[in-house]
Amino acid sequence: MALEEKLEHTQLLISGLSQGCVYGLIASGFVLIYKATEMVNFAQGDLMMFGAFLAYTFISIFNFPFALGLVAAILAMAGIGALIERFAIRPMIGEPHFSVLMITIGLGFIFRALAGFIWGSEPRSLKTPYAGKVFEFDGIIIGHENIIIVLGTLALCSALAFFFKTTNLGKAMQAASQNQLAAMYVGISVKKINSITWAISAAISATAGILIAPVSLIDPQIGFIGVKAFAAAIVGGFGSLPGAIIGGLIIGIGEQFAGLYLPPGFSEVTAYAILLTMLLIRPHGILTSVQIKKM
């Protein structure tokens, strides 16, 4: 009995971990844009959905090889991210943040409607070379797709860390996120930085979408997990990338265990219950980087 319980817990932990990684990735998308531009992109989840659909189109419809289709989808989303920045966000510089928030909500609607228009509302599945295969040891069954999600997240995080720590562009982006005006004075093109930020953020979301596609089918509504990812970003402390991943993991794992121990329906609200509790105890999240304005 105890053994069985332990097995079940491990199993839940693993699926929570992989789900949490996806939340964490989308949350990093939020955080990146917020840090660079102090704007909140509510369409992040829908960018993920759109990325997954693009990958589906390249791989399952145009019959690209898997790796090529993947790269094509990610690059295409990066392009779309940059275009959004250029045509929807840049004209809004200097306007209240709230207006930008509303614009991104509107963009979310447009993406959802567009996806429904192009691909229809039936769920699609993305063909991957690894779907359906499992590892099994000691009675624990782990799907390859779960392992790929965790590995993919790890790889992406390391790549981001490397990018921000060592490359000039990454350093410039960090500088710009600290103080745009100062960055501009030392010759950093803040406009360019903002475009790149949006491109990276959209690319990360697309990756998250591709990673999650084998686990849950793709349909125009899956973008709504963006709301949970948003909760994850806040739980982690809104300005911090590692925080976003940690927040994602907390929510992903919390959800799985709530599903086991609490009555039905509770697992759906776990993310938000965790969020509200967090706001009560520690309003600025786990890894706080927000400073209170001195008056």
Partner: peptide
């Protein structure tokens, strides 16, 4: 934005 999300939750 924190408030907006708290109310959303």
């Amino acid at each position: 934005i924190y408030l907006a999300v708290a109310t959303l939750a």
